[in-house]
Every structure is written in C-alpha cells, then in structure tokens.
C-alpha cells in the first residue's frame, strides 16, 4: 500500500467518520435527555437524502405525506389533551403548527416545480419536511410512556425504526439514489486528489458541532436541555417541561440526521434502508463514549469511519463484520473498567 492509497482511504474514513460523529452526538443527546436509545436515528439520514433527491427529480417526496399524517395525529392527541384540561386557548396554535405549516409547505411544493429551485432552497425544504417529524414521533410514540424503563423505550425505538423502514420503502421504492454534488471542486495535494465534496462534509460537520456547542452554552433552550440531561427531576422542579425537552432533543436529532443525509447524498448511493447501518455505526461511536461523553463519542465515531474505510480495502466482504465486532472489545473494556451503579427502574 502506498501513500496515495493511505491518503485516499483516510479521506474516505474521515468523511464517513464525520457523519458518524454527528450521529453519535445526536444519540448521546437523546439518550441523556430522554433515556431513549434512538435506533431510528439512521432513518432520518435516509429520509433527508431521499427527500432531497425526490425534490431534485421533480417529485413530491413521500416524507411530505408522512409529515401531514403525523401532524394530524399530533394535533388530535394534543387537542384531546387540551379539551380534557380546559385549555381551549391552545387549540389554534396546535392546529397551526401541526396541520397549518405542513399544508402550507405542501401547497408551496405543489405550486412551484421543486426540481428547478436553487439547491440551498431544496435543502431548506428538505429540512423543513424531515425535522418536525422527529418531534412528532417523540410526541406520539415516546411521550405517553416517557417514564417507562430504558428497556421498554428501547423496544419502542425498535418498533419505530421498523415502521419507518417500511414507510421508507413505500415512499422511495427499493432503488437507491444520489443527489447533485454541491461542488465539483477538487484539490491536488502531491499525488493525491482531495475532493471538494469531502472537504464540505467535514467543514459542515464541524460547523454544525460548533453551532450545537453554542446552542447548549448560550441559549436558554440549550441550557434547559442540558439541565434535563443532568437531572430530570431537578429540571422539572425548576419548571423545565420534560415533554418540551423531549420534543426538542428529538427535533435536534432529526435535524442532525437529515443534515447528515443531505451531506452524504452526493457521495454515496442511499437506499431506503441504508440509514440503519449508518446510524448503528454512529452508535458504536456513542458506545465507545459510554453514551455519556460527547468528545469521546465523536472520536470513537471517527475511529469507526477509518476502520471501515481501511477494512473495505483489505477485506471488503468482511467490512461490516469488522466494524460491528469492534463493539466487542469496546464493551469488554467498558465492563472491566466501569463499576455499574444500579438505576432505579
């Protein structure tokens, strides 16, 4: 193996590693705030990528119908709650956010031809369709049993994952797709070529991570999420709504997922079920960080990306085996070093 190949593989590994790192951060965030192990994280990657590619193909993406359907279900659940608690004044807002906004979005998409829109607008529309789905799923699937055990929430996660995979197949079909590259720049470094798209992925991931950092450090909602992650009961006593924190963290996770999908869609062909394995690799990173530490999770995810790209060179058939077997020494190491303190379930 010469230096050129090492550079190429390293480039590949860092690109996917950056995506896994984003997903690992989202997983740690969701787990810390809600105790949900968010298996469907990867589906948002696929939904983001495939929604964008549908728009570029001039089709109405199926995620739009999912948004409208889930919005109606959330509105129904929230309004029946409001009726029972005599909070009628909330009804117009509930209707506006959950039904009004998706319908406006649908109206806009029907009025223009999405394929001709500039790429940034397409990306914005994609995020506008996919991101609210995160919060809606929290409201419908998790919020009613938010106090259940981690195990129960995990089983719900798997159920949501399975349902979303099926819907993905229904919306986007079994064929994979790619989107138009954001840039066709490339740089020559010695003998190796550095793709502009790769640089974009890494830079965009870094920007998102920095943005999240400021969100958590500087904004009141970010601080509320951190408080909930540290001490749920304490945060609730301080007037931070657990439901709000849950919806917010799921929305951020959906944002991170969809954004990652948009970033990698020009580089990799994404199928309706590609998200699962991508999300799980983020998971391996998150587990290296013990589902608690953001920097270690991110570093672990980069490691997973590099391992994957090098093993696909040496033993491409066993790529997945090698990546997922990595979790075994990690778990062994964690179980030998951590003293498990029992949680009250």
């Amino acid at each position: 193996m010469d230096l050129q190949i090492v550079l190429l593989l390293g480039q590949d590994g860092i690109t996917s590693g950056a995506i896994y790192a984003l997903l690992a951060l989202a997983l740690v965030l969701v787990f810390a705030v809600t105790r949900v192990i968010f298996i469907p994280q990867g589906e948002f990657v696929a939904f983001g990528a495939l929604t964008l590619s549908s728009l570029q193909a001039g089709k109405l993406p199926g995620t739009l119908w999912l948004l409208i359907g889930l919005g109606a279900a959330v509105a129904f659940a929230d309004i029946s709650w409001a009726l029972r608690h005599h909070k009628m004044r909330r009804v117009p807002l509930i209707l506006f956010y959950n039904c009004g906004v998706p319908i406006l979005l649908a109206g806009y998409l029907l009025a223009v031809s999405p394929a001709t829109l500039p790429q940034p607008v397409q990306v914005a529309l994609t995020l506008a369709m996919v991101v609210p789905i995160g919060a809606m799923i929290y409201r419908l699937a998790y919020q009613p049993i938010a106090e259940a055990s981690v195990l129960m929430l995990l089983i719900v996660s798997v159920a949501v994952h399975v349902a979303l995979i099926g819907l993905g197949l229904l919306f986007f079909g079994a064929e994979g797709s790619r989107t138009t590259p954001f840039t066709d720049m490339s740089f020559q470094i010695g003998d190796a070529v550095l793709q502009g798209q790769t640089v974009l992925v890494v830079v965009a991931s870094l920007v998102l991570i920095v943005a999240l950092y400021f969100y958590f450090e500087r904004t009141i909602y970010g601080k509320a999420l951190r408080a909930t992650a540290m001490n749920r009961t304490g945060a609730r006593l301080m007037g931070i709504s657990a439901n709000l924190a849950g919806r917010l963290s799921f929305m951020l996770a959906a944002l991170i997922g969809a954004f990652s999908g948009v970033l990698i869609a020009p580089i990799t062909t994404i199928y309706y079920d590609s998200g699962f394995l991508i999300g799980l690799k983020g998971f391996v990173g998150a587990i290296i960080g013990g589902l608690a530490s953001y920097p270690i999770a991110a570093a672990g995810a980069i490691l997973v990306g590099l391992l994957e790209s090098f093993s696909s060179f040496y033993a491409s058939a066993f790529k997945e085996v090698i990546v997922f077997t990595l979790i075994i020494p990690v778990l062994l190491w964690r179980s030998l070093t951590s003293r498990h303190v029992e949680e009250e379930e």
Partner: peptide, 29 residues
C-alpha cells in the same frame, strides 16, 4: 453475557444488535 451483563441493562440489547449484524454478514461471506 460476560461482557455486557455487568453493565447497565441496555448494553445487552445493543451488544446483541451488533452481534446479530456481524454474524449475518459472516454467514453470507
């Protein structure tokens, strides 16, 4: 069981997901 059961209850299911995937690909390859 030895490597996952000493830790929190959710490490076993996560470990089994990873093990389920890698064994599947192993059978296939």
């Amino acid at each position: 069981g030895f490597i996952t059961l000493r830790m929190g209850g959710h490490y076993l299911p996560l470990g089994t997901i990873a093990w389920g995937i890698s064994l599947y690909f192993l059978f296939g390859n």
